[in-house]
Amino acid sequence: MDKKSPLKARNFPSAQDEAATVRLPSRYAGPGSSYGMAYADTEFLLREELRPVRMQLELMKPELIQQDQGVESTIVIFGSARFKAREEAEAMLASAQDAGHPDAIRHAERMVANVRYYEEARRFAELVTRDADALGEPVIITTGGGPGIMEAGNRGAYDAGGRSMGMSIHLPFEEDPNPYITPELCFQFHYFAIRKMHFLMRAVALVSFPGGFGTMDELFEVLTLAQTRKIRRRPIVLFGRAFWDRVVNFEALADEGVISHADLGLIHYAESAEEAWDIIKRTYRDDDPELTARQNRAA
């Protein structure tokens, strides 16, 4: 903290100062004692009745830290936690072949085939990070902080020498956050709802790679909020059209009348890192003549 002149010094000690210096009297230092600062009492904060307070804290902590770190605009990458880097997928296949287990071999073959998504996510994040000012203001990559496509996104930004953010969720089988996240921007959440809100609060675009229930949950929340105009519309890019056409028939939803055909315009498709980034840049260029001029000058 910056030193202040005597005129501007604090009139009251900070909560941090008091929490660090408080000394529990020996008579009241044992288990079951209620003595102590409420904000430093973990057992009290974890009471069922304090859920609203915990939710507020979980909303505020990432918000305040992002403000401190100067994070204003992000591009969010969704996708499967199960996809592997090439060396890991190929090692998995070799192990399955050595063991001679047909099911394991088929699964490992799919992992090898899906390596391209990991590689494209990594390239996309690297491309965005190297070209971070292309939209007229700095953007940083944000992921769910875990393995798979999330790791690839953070890894690409790391490869480019830039910052990236990870928003991990506490799970019973959780792994540590992937090692490529900027430490100051590595968060852990308890509430899925608060985490998903933070994904969107600064997002200027979202790119969803193939994934399972978690990816679908995140994607459909974004689509619903955009469809109902609860958030401003922004580019939503689905990577790998063959996958998406196979697992979600958006056209059928429109044909059945449960969404409008206009809602299909919320979605863009890409097959390469360059195409995904071009879609995002083109969307903002078309909406902003000044950005068009800046991008043309840069080209």
Rank of each mutant, 00 (worst) to 15 (best):
R123S: 07
P172L: 09
Y284L: 04
M92C: 10
R27N: 11
R130F: 03
E109N: 07
G148Q: 01
R202Y: 05
L223S: 06
F124C: 04
V128F: 01
E271A: 10
R202K: 14
P52F: 04
T215E: 00
E120G: 00
A85L: 06
S80A: 04
I259Y: 02
G148Y: 00
E43I: 06
G79F: 00
A20T: 07
L266W: 01
G162I: 05
E290Y: 03
G211M: 01
V115F: 01
I181S: 05
P183S: 10
A160I: 06
Q66Y: 06
G265N: 11
S208A: 15
N11L: 15
R246A: 15
V128D: 03
K281L: 06
L264M: 08
R233G: 11
L206V: 13
N154E: 06
A113Y: 12
S272G: 07
A160C: 05
Q97Y: 03
S73N: 14
S95L: 12
S26G: 09
A242D: 14
A132C: 15
E72C: 13
Y191T: 08
I169R: 08
V237H: 02
I140C: 11
L50E: 11
E221A: 06
D2K: 15
D2P: 14
H170V: 15
G70R: 07
N296W: 12
M60W: 14
E174V: 08
Y39P: 07
G144D: 02
G265Q: 12
I140N: 05
T143H: 02
Q69E: 14
R233Q: 15
G70E: 03
G70S: 04
R229D: 12
G162C: 04
T142R: 11
L264D: 10
G145K: 05
M60G: 12
A108M: 04
E109I: 10
Y284I: 06
R282A: 10
S164F: 00
G156V: 07
E275C: 03
D255E: 14
A85E: 14
T228G: 07
R54P: 02
A81S: 06
F187K: 05
I141A: 01
D255L: 14
M201S: 14
D133M: 15
E218Q: 06
Q295L: 09
V237M: 00
V128H: 03
G32T: 13
G136T: 05
F220G: 09
F124D: 03
A242M: 09
T215P: 00
R106N: 12
A20E: 13
V22R: 13
E271S: 11
F173C: 05
V204Y: 07
G162E: 03
A125C: 13
G30E: 10
R27S: 14
G153R: 03
L253F: 10
Y28E: 13
L225G: 04
G145T: 07
L127T: 06
